[in-house]
């Protein structure tokens, strides 16, 4: 991989809550085995020490999946999952960091926290995707990505299992695109090939 490509990889950050798991798995299944992007997944879930999400995703894709540990290196071509009970932050272009501070929107990990952190560091190279959920988390963060010049997508609330979360983002003017699941997955693939 050429050095200039290394410095221009895109960062796709996907946030989801209630009703988003199937969509996330379908997105993982749509991934090419080789990709340049970094994919970060932040889902609200119970604290499971068994890493069930990591295993579920690994069944769906050849792309390496890793639940992030503190100060892990950010490497293109990987899927990273925010660990339960921590906020996932971007320390710099090359490094994750974790934060075990107060919940945000009753959530840890909080989608807002990671969206905002990705927007701060990766600016217009950020792609934010907000899926189904019954929580207001993610909307403000998605707006930060949009204002930083990144690409933002909200799942169409009508097609989402629980429309409340993407609707919040739409109401805030954070969603550059509003797409149902099928359209969302095909644009996701296009964005990765771009």
């Amino acid at each position: 991989m050429a050095e200039n490509q290394l410095n221009t990889f895109q960062v796709v950050v996907i946030g989801g809550s209630a009703g988003s798991l199937e969509t996330v798995l379908a997105m993982a299944q749509a991934l090419p085995a080789q990709m340049q992007a970094v994919i970060i997944i932040v889902l609200h879930r119970k604290n499971d020490p068994e890493s069930i999400l990591e295993n579920l995703l690994s069944y769906k894709t050849q792309v390496p999946v890793r639940e992030v540990e503190d100060k892990d290196e950010i490497q293109p071509g990987n899927i990273y999952i925010a660990p339960p009970d921590y906020h996932l932050l971007i320390e710099d272009e090359r490094t994750f960091s974790l934060d075990s501070s107060e919940k945000v929107h009753f959530s840890k990990p909080s989608i807002d926290v990671t969206f905002e952190s990705v927007a701060n560091v990766f600016r217009q190279r950020s792609i934010g995707i907000l899926l189904s959920g019954a929580n207001a988390d993610g909307a403000a963060g998605l707006l930060k990505i949009r204002k930083a010049g990144g690409t933002t997508i909200a799942q169409d609330p009508v097609s989402a299992e629980v429309g409340y979360m993407p609707q919040q983002a739409i109401d805030l003017g954070a969603a550059g695109m509003v797409l149902d699941e099928i359209a969302l997955i095909s644009s996701f693939k296009e964005l990765l090939n771009a």
Binding site: L89, E91, D99, S101, V113
Partner: peptide
């Protein structure tokens, strides 16, 4: 201190 979380604090 790690910058990203200190900034949030």
């Amino acid at each position: 201190y790690a910058r990203a979380s200190l900034k949030r604090r």
